[in-house]
Write a protein that binds this DNA or RNA. Structure first.
Lengths: 192, 192
DNA sequence: GGCTGGGTGTTCGAAAAGCAACAGTTTACC
DNA sequence: GGTAAACTGTTGCTTTTCGAACACCCAGCC
């Protein structure tokens, strides 16, 4: 099996070095030699783990995308139900380990690897299907409202990733107000 | 020669883990398995580098002792000359890299490995020879005054290690006052 | 007493990582 | 346009590290 500590450690080191370099000089400027240098890793070892720097980025983006994918539905439901406190809280709990990496990867936008775009896309689909399930006839275009909802959520996620654990009540209220405004477009007015 | 990155990295990891564990549970409670566990190192690898945990401690203490030994005379002279600002400054500059380790090792007092005792001993010898070189007949026992001087310096070093870079003027003045009092015991009163 | 569990220190073959050299490609500059 | 420098992947061989087993010791416990 893959229980060899060495593999885990070198991949850990490579990825940490990569994130560091993303901050320092940006993806385009990074060379494989750079990564190996700051990770204290041999170049031949790098190629034993990744095809090239694009593959490295891909794998990292894929990993965090998958992580997010596991929870999208839950988070989406929390948003719909107005459990903003719970949403922010569980978001931060999940990310406690990964916040740093996600924060950095959010700044990278490559055609084939864009974590923020992936998150966005997943949420957008959730909104689309949610809206279409609504019994009411709605006047505004589905995709417009879906985009609105997605943006509210992405903004919240971005904020959470940037700020980590902070007192949340003010945030919750602000998000909640906007959330209601969006939902009003697709559901009958009701008491919350 | 021995420029294999792996050796450097594992020793780095082992020593970092060891320092961590010293803080967490203290030297006596540490097992080799502990060190390997937190360093993500195989036990057989540990024994390729060190005989046992005592050897590990020894080597670390020896290293920082040697580092200090290189500079003792200079530092001592700075003290005698009342260049307290310069003393604290160069002390911190030297230790920038090692302050953390030294701070922790200062808390470990094993019969055969005691960094603080080593520092103390080196300074004490400097004071002894310095006092004996003085032309004046002195009334107080040499070792008493030597111990006094050593203590002033050790206290300063301890403070520097704990606090790192801080605004220093108040410290300088305090130390300078005491320093003069000690020197007055062995030299004729003079204008500074 | 005997037994168990956790610690030590050693060994060995297998796996991973290192290093150095390679040809091929891009980049930068005169 | 040409050349030097830097970067890329790849390879063969060496060194280090790993994991798992071993016997041993010692402390606590039934």
């Amino acid at each position: 099996m893959t229980t060899d500590v060495r593999k885990i450690k070198t991949e850990r080191d490579i990825q940490a070095a990569f994130l560091q370099l993303l901050v320092d000089k940006g993806f385009r400027q990074i060379t494989v030699a750079d990564v190996c240098g700051t990770a204290l890793i041999s170049r031949s070892t790098f190629y034993a783990h990744y095809l090239d720097k694009y593959d490295l980025l891909d794998q990292m983006v894929a990993r965090y995308s998958a992580l997010f994918a596991q929870r999208v539905s839950v988070r989406f439901q929390q948003m719909i139900d107005g459990e903003i406190d719970a949403l922010v809280h569980s978001l931060l709990a999940d990310m406690a380990e990964n916040r740093h990496a996600i924060q950095i990867l959010f700044t990278v936008h490559e055609p084939e690897a864009d974590l923020k775009a992936n998150f966005d896309q997943m949420l957008f689909k959730e909104w689309q299907t949610f809206i279409k399930e609504q019994p009411l006839e709605i006047k505004a275009p589905v995709d417009l409202i879906a985009a609105m909802g997605t943006n509210v959520q992405m903004t919240l996620i971005d904020w959470a990733v940037q700020h980590g654990e902070v007192s949340i009540t003010a945030v919750s209220e602000a998000v909640d107000t906007i959330r209601k405004a969006v939902l009003l477009q697709i559901t009958p007015a009701k008491k919350d």
